[in-house]
């Protein structure tokens, strides 16, 4: 039994693992988008650039300051999250009274600026970020070799998603957040500082993207375009899942990663497009998305 439908099992499991890893990034990024959208009503087009900034921040910390991966995992989300807070205070907060589309255009412009600056500074070719020694090597699982770092990414990303879900669904902070999503004016009337909550939420969403960037740095080469290519797929993931449910966007993210991995095995030509095709099918069958409420 080392073949399934004529596909060698190591190949199948290898692609499944790659799919899970992509899915982990889809899940983390769409989670951040959903959290931000829930409270700000802004689709954060800068999300891809902030993911890329996370990877670069980890690279800079290591190469310029000698800060290792484990500290980067903590420091980078804080640093990039702080830049997000500044961004929200200075620019995004001015647009809440306007049509939501302006938020999209503004964050798109900011993303262009960030990507352009990094391209000038670092060029378009990728920079290597080596896997931390504690996580290098591979496990022999009997049916395949599993690089330790890849297993770590999947487990860690799943844990982060779960933690985010717990904070939003099970804590009083999360309860305030959900209430402010439903009716900000009423929550403000209860004496909760909603504008500050909005700012911190944006920072947290950005921090999630940056954390994803740190995780991605040793797997993908660190380059200025790494975010923009990913973010469009994540938009499709968000449309498929619907942004109404936190758990929904996590499940959709991982699920679509796996589907993409399987497509690479069975019909490689379609692997770049399969998520978009699924988006079309979902829109035709269930326009609100798999986990969405009708808009």
């Amino acid at each position: 039994m080392d073949e399934l439908f004529g596909i060698p099992l190591p190949l199948l499991f290898g692609q499944l693992l790659l799919g899970l890893i992509n899915g982990a990034f889809y899940a983390m990024l769409s989670l951040g988008l959903a959290v931000i959208f829930g409270l700000l009503n802004v689709i954060n087009f800068t999300h891809g650039a902030q993911f890329m900034m996370g990877a670069f921040a980890a690279w800079m910390l290591l190469n310029w300051f000698g800060v290792n991966y484990w500290f980067a995992l903590i420091l980078v989300p804080i640093i990039i999250g702080a830049t997000g807070i500044v961004l929200e205070k200075l620019m995004i907060s001015r647009l809440y009274k306007l049509d939501h589309l302006y938020g999209l255009l503004l964050t798109f412009g900011i993303g262009l600026v960030i990507e352009g600056v990094f391209r000038n500074e670092f060029g378009s070719s990728g920079l290597p970020y080596r896997i931390p020694p504690e996580l290098s090597g591979a496990w022999d699982l009997g049916f395949m070799f599993m690089p330790v770092y890849r297993g770590w990414v999947v487990v860690f990303a799943a844990a982060v998603c779960l933690a985010t879900w717990l904070v939003i669904e099970k804590t009083s902070l999360g309860a305030n957040l959900r209430a402010a999503t439903e009716n900000p004016a009423l929550v403000q009337a209860f004496g909760i500082n909603v504008p500050r909550m909005v700012t911190l939420t944006y920072g947290a969403g950005v921090a999630l993207a940056a954390l994803g960037g740190v995780l991605a740095a040793p797997i993908y080469s660190v380059n200025p375009q790494m975010g923009s290519n990913l973010i469009i797929v994540v938009f499709a993931v968000v449309v498929i899942g619907g942004m109404g449910s936190i758990l929904g966007s996590v499940i959709t993210g991982f699920g679509l990663g796996i589907v993409e991995g399987l497509t690479k095995v069975f019909y490689p030509e379609a692997s770049a497009t399969v998520i978009f095709v699924i988006m079309i099918i979902v829109l035709l069958a269930r326009p609100a998305g798999l986990f969405g409420r009708t808009a």
Binding site: V113, G116, N120
Partner: peptide, 18 residues
């Protein structure tokens, strides 16, 4: 100017929207 064009375009985006 290469990639600075992207930066300038992004900046115009931001200025127009704000």
């Amino acid at each position: 100017w290469g990639a600075w064009v992207t930066v300038i375009q992004g900046g115009i985006f931001v200025a127009c929207v704000l």
